[in-house]
């Protein structure tokens, strides 16, 4: 059965139809990439899936049940890294990740392991304001991996990553798939898409 099912999802801003009757399903261990030109509604689709925005019509199902963002079970399954993330100015990098790990029951990869994997261990005690944009992006991505997940939603995760970071990302996504995580991702990186994507969801075409 699909982990994620999207049926007839429509989003309008007044008379402007951004997403029109979008349908797709995503099973465990597969990665679907949302493709389309700028302004085609990729981010809006991801925001509707994670509950940061409300669709005007249609539904999002997780494990066949309607996805309500307020349901703790949904939040336990779904890990997301979108562009709306913000940081506590007075918590260090490591403390951010420890907080997420604790709030999710403390069952995932240890924070230290993720910090090392993402090359964040050097800045573990730094406050967010001191990080570069690339390091912030790594911290955002790290927040998805210190907690349990069965569905990963990423909005252009390759943005602001250097060459090494992009190589790590491709490898990580392949491992996520191998571990049975379903991944829904928007991206403009043709190489990354070719390397990791199983399905393609066209929007705005």
């Amino acid at each position: 059965m699909d982990i994620l099912t999207v049926r007839g999802l429509t989003r309008r801003f007044g008379e402007l139809v951004v997403l029109d009757d979008v349908h797709f399903g995503l099973t465990a261990g597969r990665l679907a990439v949302v493709a389309g030109p700028n302004g085609s509604g990729k981010t809006t689709l991801l925001r509707c899936v994670v509950g940061s925005d409300r669709p005007d019509e249609g539904e999002v199902l997780i494990d066949g049940k309607p996805c309500h963002e307020t349901d703790p079970e949904v939040r336990a399954v779904l890990a997301a890294a979108l562009d709306d993330i913000d940081f506590f100015p007075d918590l260090s990098v490591a403390e951010h990740l420890e907080l997420v790990a604790y709030a999710h029951g403390g069952a995932a990869q240890p924070v230290a392991e993720i910090l090392a994997e993402l090359d964040l261990d050097r800045v573990a005690d730094q406050l967010p304001v001191t990080l570069s944009s690339g390091q912030r992006q790594r911290l955002t991505l790290a927040s998805c991996f210190v907690r349990p997940r069965r569905l990963l939603v990423l909005d252009e995760p390759e943005q602001r990553l250097d060459g090494r970071g992009r190589a790590w990302l491709a490898d990580r996504l392949l491992r996520e798939k191998a571990a049975g995580t379903a991944v829904l991702m928007a991206s403009h990186d043709a190489d990354l898409i070719a390397e990791v994507a199983d399905d393609r969801i066209e929007v705005g075409g």
């Binding site: 336990a76 918590l91 420890e98 604790y102 709030a103 990869q109 392991e113 069965r150 571990a179």
Partner: peptide
């Protein structure tokens, strides 16, 4: 290194516990 994606074996903490932890960290 395999990614860990299983559901949490222990339940999520209570809201008060999370708030207290955040307060302690910020203090």
């Amino acid at each position: 290194m395999a990614a860990t994606t299983s559901a949490p074996p222990s339940p999520a903490p209570r809201a008060g516990q999370v708030r207290a932890r955040l307060r302690r960290a910020r203090r």
